[in-house]
Simulated assay, not measured.
Amino acid sequence: MPTDRQADLLIAVALTEFSVHYEVAAPGLAEHAWQLAADRLLEYDVEPREATGALEIK
């Protein structure tokens, strides 16, 4: 069972992926997704490029 931290980081990764894939098609929505992801990462003091490693999934 994932911890709250792992769940939040996984959501942040998914939101980041969403923002990248919809950047052209829906820039406002992509920006909102990116901001939500950034807020979750900031809460755990994790940089976007470190998010997948910070999940610590075994």
Rank of each mutant, 00 (worst) to 15 (best):
D4R: 07
R5F: 04
E47D: 14
L41Y: 05
A14N: 08
D8A: 15
L55N: 06
I11N: 10
L15R: 07
L15K: 06
A30D: 11
L9P: 03
Y22Q: 11
R40G: 01
P2Y: 09
E31H: 10
V46W: 06
F18Y: 08
F18R: 05
Y22V: 09
D39G: 08
Y44G: 02
Q6V: 01
Y22A: 11
D4S: 11
L29E: 12
M1A: 09
A33T: 06
A37C: 10
L10W: 04
E56Q: 12
V20T: 15
D4N: 10
D4I: 05
F18C: 02
R40T: 00
S19I: 03
A37R: 07
E23M: 09
L36V: 04
T3M: 03
A7W: 01
T52Q: 13
A38Y: 12
P27L: 15
T3K: 07
D4M: 08
A37H: 08
D45K: 12
V24Q: 08
A54H: 09
L9G: 03
S19H: 08
A12H: 05
P48G: 08
S19D: 08
A26P: 00
E47H: 12
L29R: 14
V20H: 14
L10T: 09
L15N: 07
E43A: 15
A33D: 04
E31V: 01
L9E: 03
T16Q: 14
Q35D: 03
E31T: 13
D45V: 07
L55G: 01
S19Y: 06
A54L: 02
Y22W: 15
A54R: 15
V20R: 15
P27Y: 12
A12N: 05
A38E: 14
D4K: 07
L9N: 04
F18H: 04
T3P: 04
H32Y: 12
W34H: 14
M1V: 09
S19R: 05
E47Y: 02
T16I: 01
R5I: 02
V24C: 01
S19V: 05
Y22G: 02
Y44E: 00
V20D: 12
A51G: 11
P2N: 06
L55R: 10
V46T: 03
P48A: 09
A12E: 06
E47Q: 15
L41H: 05
A30K: 11
Q35G: 00
Q35P: 00
K58W: 11
A33M: 02
G53P: 02
D8Y: 04
E56G: 03
Q35E: 05
A7K: 13
A25G: 13
I11E: 12
P27G: 08
G28N: 15
K58Q: 13
K58Y: 10
Q6P: 02
T16Y: 08
E50H: 15
Y22R: 10
V13F: 03
A12V: 02
Y22K: 06
L41R: 04
Q6W: 07
L9V: 01
A33Q: 06
E17C: 01
A25L: 13
G53I: 01
Y44V: 02
E43L: 13
E31R: 13
P27K: 09
A12T: 02
H21D: 14
V13K: 04
S19L: 05
A33R: 08
Q35I: 00
A51W: 13
A12Y: 08
L36I: 00
I11G: 02
T52C: 07
Y44R: 12
